[in-house]
């Protein structure tokens, strides 16, 4: 991880209040892979915390990264107004990212809403694996978020406002196909209720392949020092830090 000046190369609205930004790094960053995140300033001194976003794509030299963000509060609002060429500061890459066993061949991705973004670089990080992505979005407007993932994964999509006959959400979509697909692992990123639904399904259906979730928590330092972003461990005493020990954890090891 390192601290570097970045220049906004692109920052454009790709759907209603959803933006994609490309950053040029002043100092190239090593060790970027899918599931890691960056912490970026929003270009305004009164917002003293950087904002965390999943890295949705990166180039081989580590000179360029992309992330997608939804305008939620003041920081993302500020960010969305920034012009190309604006200088910001970023800390990256942060977190453990998705670490896939070399023996795993077929991987199920489950994502809800903006949760699809951190999977964007998966095809680059793991070109040899077969990915099937089960995605849930509020409505068709978010379809643009599937562009990157469609390049390397088979897609199954469900929209909240047009539920399918046999599936209302991404978890149900996945469960319908789970028996026949022979997956080696499951990766999930989305809202908390999605994690809980998946955890229940894993217990009820006795799904015994490795399953990982990528968590979100409000952060201070973003580097593991302040203990602000913790999550309770499910099996052991004590907390884990989402920013440093995660954001990706085995689903059985964290309280959701």
């Amino acid at each position: 991880m390192k601290e570097t000046k970045v220049i906004i190369e692109k920052n454009s609205e790709v759907a209603d209040s959803i933006y994609e930004a490309t950053l040029l790094l002043d100092e190239p960053a090593q060790d970027i892979w899918a599931g890691k995140f960056l912490n970026v300033s929003v270009g305004d001194g009164s917002h003293i915390l950087k904002r965390p976003f999943g890295i949705s794509d990166y180039d081989a030299k580590g000179e360029k990264v992309k992330f997608c963000y939804q305008v939620r509060g003041e920081g993302t609002e500020k960010l969305s107004k920034l012009k190309c060429g604006t200088e910001l500061m970023a800390t990256l890459p942060l977190g453990n990212g998705f670490l896939l066993d070399k023996n795993w061949k077929k991987i199920a991705i489950l994502a809800g809403g903006m949760g699809v973004c951190p999977f964007g670089g998966m095809g680059k990080s793991y070109p040899d694996k077969h990915f099937v992505a089960y995605l849930g979005f509020r409505n068709k407007k978010a379809e643009c978020l599937t562009k990157r993932i469609s390049r390397f994964a088979d897609l199954r999509i469900v929209y909240d406002d047009e539920p399918l006959e046999n599936a209302k959400n991404a978890v149900e979509l996945f469960l319908n196909e789970y028996e026949s697909e022979n997956f080696d692992a499951i990766l999930c990123c989305g809202p908390k209720p999605m994690f809980r639904a998946l955890k229940n399904a894993i217990e009820n259906r006795k799904i015994d392949i490795p399953c990982f979730v990528s968590l979100e928590e409000r952060m201070g330092c973003g580097v593991g020092a302040c203990l602000v972003c913790v999550c309770k461990q499910a099996k052991a005493e004590g907390n884990v830090r989402v920013c440093k020990d995660g954001p990706v954890f085995p689903i059985s090891e964290v309280e959701l």
Partner: peptide, 11 residues
């Protein structure tokens, strides 16, 4: 958690 909130020029 949440254990942190941002306020103008502070936390």
């Amino acid at each position: 958690t949440p254990r942190i909130a941002e306020t103008p020029s502070g936390i």
